[in-house]
């Protein structure tokens, strides 16, 4: 589904990604963890070309995003994204937030889009908020709307960029529940997260990125119970010691 080869990304003189290879199979849930500034969000943002890679190649569902012939808007519609800060459209109702993509990108009629929108809002448990506006919702509710908004394009993969990092602790669970439900339904997901519990329980594979390279990857069981890389050991030690 996603095939990243030798990805590099520089911001000016700063080398953020220094050669990353990553292959994500259809239906797979991959969690990316790592300290802040390690480049994990940048990798995610390169996949739908919100950041333009400095070198390397990325293919999403067979489409080479670096190829000038590729219509990046079509690729983005196939690869939904959920942001840390939700980024809902504040001037639109919740339902309009969800239906904008289907109407403008998929050329769906308003009636069909509304029907789809209500169905998706029901799925994330917010059907009764359809006519509300983003500023009337809690953070957790906003993020669930954002998930519905990306689902509305019927994407083949969803990229989650620290989806629970901006939430109050008591609101994290409701978002993770929705994500877990999606994972069970077979959605391909790449999740940058600090929620080790979620990674352990839901991920098929966990990847540890530090200093712009993948330091260690593996199935969650081994990964968390028996880390080999000293940086990962150190990282997990710091995260766990506060629990």
């Amino acid at each position: 589904m996603i095939n990243i080869k030798n990805l590099h990304k520089n911001f000016g003189d700063l080398k953020v990604i220094k050669g990353i290879d990553l292959h994500v199979k259809s239906g797979e849930v991959v969690c990316i963890i790592g300290p802040s500034g390690s480049g994990k969000s940048t990798v995610l943002r390169c996949i739908n070309k919100l950041e333009v890679p400095s070198s390397g190649s990325i293919a999403v569902d067979g489409h080479d995003i670096m190829d000038k012939q590729t219509n990046i808007n079509e690729v983005r519609a196939e690869a939904g994204m959920v942001f840390q800060q939700f980024n809902l459209f504040p001037h639109m109702s919740i339902l309009e937030n969800v239906t904008l993509g289907p109407i403008k990108v998929r050329n769906m009629s308003k009636t069909d889009a509304d029907e789809l929108g209500v169905k998706l809002l029901e799925k994330v448990g917010l059907k009764d908020k359809a006519e509300n506006y983003p500023d009337q919702l809690s953070g957790g509710q906003k993020q669930r709307v954002a998930i519905a908004r990306s689902l509305a394009l019927q994407p083949k993969v969803i990229l989650f960029d620290e989806p629970t990092s901006a939430l109050d602790p008591e609101l994290v669970g409701e978002v993770l529940d929705v994500m877990q439900k999606l994972a069970k339904e077979g959605m391909t997901m790449v999740v940058v997260t600090h929620e080790m519990g979620f990674a352990k329980e839901v991920a098929d594979r966990v990847i540890f990125i530090d200093e712009g390279v993948i330091q260690e990857e593996g199935a969650p069981d081994n990964f968390f119970s028996n880390p080999k890389n000293p940086r990962l050991k150190d990282f997990l030690g710091k995260v766990v010691s506060h629990l």
Partner: peptide, 23 residues
């Protein structure tokens, strides 16, 4: 306008023009 708004618009597949117009 917060750049996140443009990113959200582009991430659902809107073109630059559509993002400007609707978002």
């Amino acid at each position: 306008i917060n750049p996140g708004q443009v990113e959200a618009g582009r991430s659902i597949g809107l073109t630059r023009t559509q993002t400007m117009l609707y978002v």
